[in-house]
């Protein structure tokens, strides 16, 4: 089990009321699960207040980087103490 630093970037700070936290987890999947459990309800609450009925998740609406590398490009999801995880709101609007 590693202790990793998680940083929320973009509207997450406003929506979830958190900028940084530490999470104890063995893998990236563990981090996502804990993040959704802890902060997911706040996102859903925000969505409902905005009239959004669609099911969405923090991880599904984020680009997640582990030590600068996108999780979709990671070959090993095992975490080490002090790993830095950026949860960046994903958007493609123009």
């Amino acid at each position: 089990m590693a202790t990793v630093n998680v940083r929320f970037v973009g509207p997450w700070r406003l929506y979830l009321g958190v900028e940084r936290c530490t999470i104890q987890a063995a893998t990236v999947e563990d981090v996502i699960e804990q993040m959704e459990t802890t902060y997911g309800p706040k996102y859903h609450e925000r969505l409902l207040r905005g009239g959004v009925k669609e099911r969405r998740s923090i991880s599904g609406d984020s680009n997640i980087l582990v030590n600068r590398v996108h999780i979709r490009q990671l070959t090993d999801h095992t975490l080490k103490d002090g790993d830095n995880i950026d949860v960046i709101a994903r958007f493609v609007g123009g």
Partner: peptide
């Protein structure tokens, strides 16, 4: 772009929730 979004292009964005107000663009 793959460094930001990862490989592939099957992703959606939070703009569906946030909208796009006047000044940001």
């Amino acid at each position: 772009l793959s460094a930001i979004y990862g490989p592939g292009c099957d992703v959606r964005g939070v703009e569906a929730v946030t909208g796009n107000p006047s000044a940001t663009p």
